[in-house]
Computed example of a mutant assay.
Amino acid sequence: MSHVRAAVLDDLDVLTHLLDEYRQFYQQPSDPEGARRFLSQRFGLGDAFILVSENARGEVDGFVQLYPGLSTVGLNARWTLNDLYVLPQSRGQGSGRALMEAAATLAQDHGVPRLVLMTQVSNARAQALYESLGWQRNNEFYSYLLNV
């Protein structure tokens, strides 16, 4: 059973490793220094919520990161669940599910009515997890990107 808690600055080393692996999962080059700098900024600015999961041995084995935002259409808050990553050896043991459930609870505790996320079309394992937790695929909007 996984234990989920808010990340603290003392988690920076293990989070740096997890974020670097997460980025590599998405075909980005390894950049531990960049990952550490990025996470340090999140802690310093307080502009994200980071939760970590701990396995039965008390080792951090995954994280989820949420970014607060607003919905003009909904006239309310809408958070983006931007990152979910669990170490390969810990997958299938409930860490991802625990992180997702904790993220939903955190949003609810803050009065946030909606979480949104994007995942790769080919990431069927993640999609199965999301759908098992009641997330619904958005078929009404396209996602666009612009590099500037």
Rank of each mutant, 00 (worst) to 15 (best):
G46H: 07
L39H: 08
A56H: 12
M118S: 13
R114A: 05
L145E: 15
S90G: 03
N147Y: 04
V116Y: 08
Y26P: 09
L45K: 10
D13G: 06
D11Q: 08
F38C: 03
R91M: 08
V116R: 05
R23T: 03
R137P: 14
L9V: 12
E21T: 04
V121C: 11
G94F: 02
T16D: 07
D10N: 15
W79N: 06
H17N: 00
V4F: 01
P113H: 04
L66S: 07
Y67R: 14
G62A: 06
D31Y: 02
L106S: 08
N82I: 02
N55C: 10
M118R: 07
R137W: 04
T72K: 00
L146Q: 14
G62K: 05
E54N: 10
L129W: 05
Q24H: 01
S53C: 07
Q136A: 09
S143F: 13
Y26E: 09
Y85H: 13
R37H: 12
A102G: 08
R37S: 15
R125M: 00
Q27I: 00
L129M: 10
L66P: 12
V8Q: 13
Q136T: 09
Q65T: 06
Q27F: 00
R42A: 12
F63T: 05
R137E: 14
G134M: 11
G74E: 00
